[in-house]
Structures are given as structure tokens and as C-alpha cells.
């Protein structure tokens, strides 16, 4: 993959470099095809876990929004799973975990498609989720974004795999940076506070909260994120937990 194209796709070029490349991309069919090719290679590398942590975080930030790219990630994961299975036909354990990851990614593609269809009818915005299960780990990761339009009164339904001990929630909170003092609260449908905490880490400008699975409520819940001492509400993420 050309370094320049990869840098563009990972948002690493300067404004001037970006601008020049875009002009060439709009004028040159072959360059545009090479961009598409570079993107496929990047998506495949991400799906196979071959990107550096920094690049993976950059890439993941870019996949929080566009349904098209999320679909491409699902396909890339399927291709990778197929390739791995073909190489190790007896490795059922790995296959099962890859399939777990794929199934949730696929579900989100469906959600985003539904969102896309619904968008024509409303401008209301509610959160969406991209969910991935780390193979072999007891931590389930959830990526929440507040920028995808979805069906009214809809929230992602999350089923924790057996043995999950912690839920790692990364949220795309608008207009915050790692310098912003954040505080999150998870409330059950009854309004009871079941967990509260501060970010454990940041993925770019998205805070990550680590919630013990034992504290998760069953059924509908809501994660609220507040900023600063004044507790300004900056994100509301409805969720639903199943199988607890």
C-alpha cells in the first residue's frame, strides 16, 4: 500500500498534502482505484489485527460513523476468519470466537442500514453501537457513538458472553478531549445508580470506561456522561443488557 494513500486514509497528512491528493484523486481514475485498493488493504489489516495500536485507534475512530465502512469491516472479518479457518481446519476454538466478533459486527451493519432507511423520515439522533468481543478475553468491548440516526426509541441490545467479567465502553462523546474531566453514570431502568466512574483511558477523543459485569443491570439501562465540575450532560447512551 502506498504510504501516502495509507496516510490519507488514516488522517495523517497535512492539510496541504491532503488537498493535493484529493485534487489528484478527483482527476485520476487510476489513483482513485488505488485509493480503493489501499482502503481494502487497510480494512483487512484492521480486521486481522495487523495495525499498530495507534493506527487501529485512528481507523476505529473513522469507522464509528459510516455504515459503508462498517460493512466493509464485517466483510473483511469474514474473509479473515475464512482464511484462518482454511489454514487451521481443526482450530474450532478460534473460529468460534471470530464468529462471535463477526456476528455482533454484522448486527450493527443491520442496525445502521435500518438507521439509514429511517433517516429519510426523521432527523432525531440517538446512539448507536459497534460491538466487538475480544477472542479469548473476559472483557467485552462496546463502542458507542451518538451520531448515527436510528429508529425512534431504539437502543442496542447487548448480550454478554458467559464468563465476561468486565464491560469496556468506549463512547464517541461530542466535543471532548482527553483533557476534559468526565464522569459517567450507569442507571437501571428504575433510575437506580448501578455504577459510576471516570475514564480508564482514551481512544483518540473517545473516553473508555471499564464497568464490572457484576454491576450491570438486566434489561434497559442508560449511560450518562457528564463533563466538568458543573456536571454538564454531554452524552446519553441508552442500552439494554440481556442474559445477565
Amino acid at each position: 500500500m502506498s504510504d501516502e494513500l495509507r496516510a490519507y486514509l488514516l488522517d495523517k497528512l497535512t492539510q496541504e498534502e491532503r488537498s493535493l491528493l484529493e485534487e489528484r484523486m478527483f482527476a485520476d481514475d487510476e489513483l482513485f482505484d488505488r485509493m480503493l485498493d489501499a482502503e481494502n488493504d487497510l480494512v483487512d489489516a484492521y480486521a486481522a489485527g495487523r495495525l499498530s495500536p495507534g493506527d487501529a485507534a485512528k481507523f476505529a475512530a473513522g469507522t464509528n460513523h459510516p455504515p459503508g465502512r462498517r460493512n466493509r469491516v464485517t466483510v473483511a472479518k469474514a474473509l479473515f476468519a475464512r482464511e484462518q479457518t482454511a489454514r487451521s481446519p481443526g482450530n474450532r476454538y478460534r473460529k468460534v470466537h471470530l464468529q462471535q466478533a463477526l456476528s455482533v459486527a454484522a448486527a450493527l451493519v443491520v442496525v445502521s442500514v435500518a438507521a439509514w432507511l429511517y433517516k429519510a423520515k426523521t432527523s432525531m439522533l440517538v446512539p448507536s453501537a459497534r460491538i466487538a468481543v475480544r477472542p479469548g478475553a473476559s472483557v467485552m468491548s462496546i463502542f458507542l457513538t451518538s451520531t448515527v440516526t436510528r429508529e425512534r426509541n431504539a437502543a442496542p441490545s447487548i448480550t454478554l458472553p458467559k464468563g465476561t467479567t468486565e464491560l469496556r465502553v468506549t463512547a464517541a462523546v461530542p466535543a471532548v478531549t482527553p483533557d476534559t474531566a468526565l464522569h459517567a453514570e450507569l442507571r437501571a431502568a428504575t433510575g437506580n445508580l448501578v455504577w459510576q466512574g471516570t475514564p480508564q483511558s482514551w481512544a483518540g477523543n473517545s473516553p473508555t470506561f471499564l464497568i464490572p459485569a457484576a454491576q450491570l443491570p438486566s434489561g434497559a439501562a442508560e449511560l450518562d456522561v457528564f463533563a466538568g465540575a458543573a456536571r454538564r450532560l454531554v452524552g446519553v447512551y441508552p442500552l439494554r443488557f440481556e442474559g445477565l
Partner: peptide, 9 residues
């Protein structure tokens, strides 16, 4: 920003 709590999908 998000302002609407929601039941499940």
C-alpha cells in the same frame, strides 16, 4: 448530541 432515552432494538 443525544437527548432521547430509548427502549431496545
Amino acid at each position: 448530541t443525544v437527548a432521547h432515552p430509548a427502549p431496545p432494538i
